[in-house]
Amino acid sequence: MSFMKDPKRSKFDVEPGLASPLDVAAGTAERETLAMVAEALKLRRTRLAFQPAVYAADPSIIGFYEGFIRLLDSRDRVIPAREFMGVTERQELGREIDCAALQMGLMTLQRNPGVRVAVNMSARSVGYKRWTALLRQALKQAPELGACLILEINEASAMQVPDVLLPFMAEMREAGIVFSLDDFGAAGTSLGLLRDFQFEIAKIDGMFIRHIDSNAENQPVVRSAIAIARELGMFLVAEAVETDAEANWLRDAGVGCLQGYLFGAPTVTPDFAAFRKGRTKV
Rank of each mutant, 00 (worst) to 15 (best):
A158C: 09
L41T: 15
Q137C: 14
R82H: 15
K281W: 06
F263N: 12
D76I: 02
G67A: 08
V24P: 05
D271S: 07
R90W: 05
L191M: 06
V241Q: 06
G185K: 03
F12N: 08
E15N: 11
V119L: 04
P7R: 04
H211I: 01
I226P: 01
T33V: 15
I228K: 09
N248E: 13
R75V: 03
P21L: 09
G146K: 15
G278D: 10
F235L: 14
G176T: 07
L139Y: 06
Q103T: 07
A225L: 10
Y128N: 08
S224L: 08
A216N: 00
S20M: 15
A273T: 09
F68C: 03
M172I: 05
S125H: 10
K8H: 09
A123S: 15
A187N: 11
Q219N: 04
F179V: 06
E83M: 15
R230M: 07
V161Q: 14
D163A: 13
A35Y: 09
F179M: 05
I153A: 08
E92G: 14
F235Y: 11
A170G: 12
V78M: 12
F184A: 04
V87P: 00
D252Q: 05
T132D: 08
A26F: 11
S20A: 09
I209G: 00
P270V: 07
A142R: 03
G86V: 11
M207I: 13
N215K: 00
V78S: 06
S10V: 03
V241Y: 05
V282I: 11
F68K: 03
R116I: 14
N248Y: 01
L71E: 08
L151A: 14
R173V: 06
G63C: 05
S214A: 12
G67D: 03
S125F: 12
A247V: 00
M104D: 03
G146M: 14
D244W: 08
N154K: 12
D13R: 00
E246I: 00
L250H: 01
